[in-house]
């Protein structure tokens, strides 16, 4: 229960040790999964089973056939040695927290830290691209504790400001990965979502597994403000004075259309789409994401 309490978003807001947060989130997460959810190309021997017609003959253990005169097929446990790249939207809109305890950026950082911790624990290589991936904001894929510590340090220092060249950042993250891997994108999709989704589809076509975490606050999905407000765009500074009470209905309809469009487009392009509410438990978000992965629960 203490672990569950620790990963409450309200509590996470008061903890600055990202490593601690990541470990707690992962501890609570893995205890329910029992095995690695990620699937790579390396494999460890798991067991033998009788050969059945149709099995690939390259997996037949010929030495054992010589000794026993029976055909056995070797089965392998896949290992998690995938390179993974985390791409995080650091635009000013990600600094919005609404009535929730965490900003969208902070919530994305927590998710990324937990996933990177999970991957690092399995010996995988992790890369990080913050914002436009400029100087000091891109960490190439590597493994090891030192690198993981650098990843967490960079995540902890991430700040929401200015616009975010979403398409360019996604493209850069995909291209900088030397081989096929995982690409995790955390964004609110407010920065040219059409180009962003196009680049994500392109990354899929490059062979990457792409996961899109669409991070939003509840106050964005449903307009909770009441009365006349002057809304100011945090990125452009533009203002618009409207009666939020009267505007709530049309607003919600537009947001839902936006979300449906994003999800449909993402799924159509082979992108694993997750809509994330910053009030949800991070481990629940990750568990739902991991459960959807092909390797989870698969019988070896």
């Amino acid at each position: 229960m203490p672990d569950a309490l620790l990963v409450e978003p309200a509590l996470l807001a008061g903890i600055s040790d990202l490593d601690l947060i990541a470990r707690r989130v992962v501890d609570g997460l893995v205890s329910g999964l029992h095995r690695s959810p990620f699937h790579g190309f390396s494999a460890e021997f798991h067991q033998y089973r009788h050969y059945r017609p149709g099995d690939d003959v390259k997996h037949v253990d010929w030495k054992l056939f010589a000794r026993t005169d029976r055909l056995y097929t070797k089965q392998f446990q896949e290992t998690t040695n995938l390179p993974a790249s985390f791409v995080i939207d650091t635009s000013a809109s990600m600094g919005f927290a609404g009535s929730g305890p965490l900003t969208k950026l902070r919530y994305a950082v927590v998710l990324a830290a937990a996933l990177s911790h999970l991957l690092a624990r399995q010996g995988d290589q992790v890369a990080l691209l913050l914002g436009d991936g400029g100087a000091g904001r891109y960490l190439a894929p590597r493994g090891g504790r030192v690198h993981q510590r650098a990843i967490l340090h960079a995540l902890a220092a991430a700040e929401a400001a200015g616009p975010w060249p979403a398409a360019a950042a996604v493209r850069a993250a995909a291209l900088r990965m030397a081989r096929r891997g995982l690409v995790f994108v955390f964004t609110d999709l407010y920065d040219d979502e059409a180009s962003t989704l196009a680049e994500l589809r392109h990354a899929v076509s490059m062979g990457h597994d792409v996961a899109l975490f669409h991070v939003l606050t509840r106050d964005e999905v449903t307009l909770t403000a009441a009365g006349v407000h002057e809304f100011e765009d945090v990125e452009t500074g533009a203002t618009r004075e409207v009666d939020a009470t009267a505007m709530a209905g049309p607003y919600t309809a537009r947001v839902r259309a936006f979300l449906d469009e994003a999800r449909t487009t993402a799924q159509a392009g082979g992108i694993d789409y997750s809509l994330v509410d910053t009030r949800m438990l991070p481990q629940d978000v990750l568990r739902r994401f991991l459960v959807r992965q092909p390797g989870v629960g698969r019988t070896p």
Binding site: T236, A238, Y251
Partner: peptide, 16 residues
């Protein structure tokens, strides 16, 4: 005295 509300985006807020 109209309250100002900093919001992530105005794309869903239609002008009167």
């Amino acid at each position: 005295a109209t309250r100002r509300l900093v919001f992530p985006t105005l794309r869903f807020i239609e002008a009167p």
